[in-house]
Design a binder for these strands. Sequence first.
DNA 1: CAGAACCGTAAGTCACGACTTACGGTAAGT
DNA 2: ACTTACCGTAAGTCGTGACTTACGGTTCTG
Lengths: 102, 102
Amino acid sequence: MAYVDSLVALADPTRRSLFEAIAARPASVKELAANLPISRPAVSQHLKVLQNADLVKAHAQGTRRIYELDRRGLEALRTYLDQFWTDALGAYAAEVARRTQT
Amino acid sequence: MAYVDSLVALADPTRRSLFEAIAARPASVKELAANLPISRPAVSQHLKVLQNADLVKAHAQGTRRIYELDRRGLEALRTYLDQFWTDALGAYAAEVARRTQT
DNA sequence: CAGAACCGTAAGTCACGACTTACGGTAAGT
DNA sequence: ACTTACCGTAAGTCGTGACTTACGGTTCTG
């Protein structure tokens, strides 16, 4: 259920900010913390959540840890959502068609 | 920012259960509550959240309210995620390519 | 070999959100 | 009209998770 972790991770506004910042450009923890109104340890904690949701991955570079995007988390989430796209137009289509109002 | 509401709504396990049940087949509040270990008012509260995330829509049928899937919420969420798919392969591609390890 | 820079974890606080019960409101049945 | 069925909202409780400060560990630099 990796998609669950992705959903929970991205539901938090601070983690979304981190994720979006990392997606735009890989960065160190300090750099990421500089653009947020919270402490550096808080950023580390959020990154941990993002990381084991496979939304982000890190690699050391000297004493710094550079975080970059990991597409596996997004992919899991995407797959989960796509399931409803097709389901909603398959078995569910007949039901909807009858009372269509959209 | 409709996608934010969708993310928050689907981050809760109970709301996911409701959403998935509704996606599989439209149902009344009582029917939905019957398959969950929580009270009926709790279900109503969750449905309210799902509804103003545009993940679900309701229409009255006698004294019952039938909830069915609303694709607008999913669409908003999908669009948000797709943004990273392309971004991550565009401006971000060069950065990654250099330190590729995946 | 200090000292500094960068980071993760531990422990504790506090607000928020997921529940409950109680209540009121509307539509159908007799 | 009265009762029953179905539902939403109000108010209050309680656990979880998003923060903080404090600490220890590792890697460059002088």
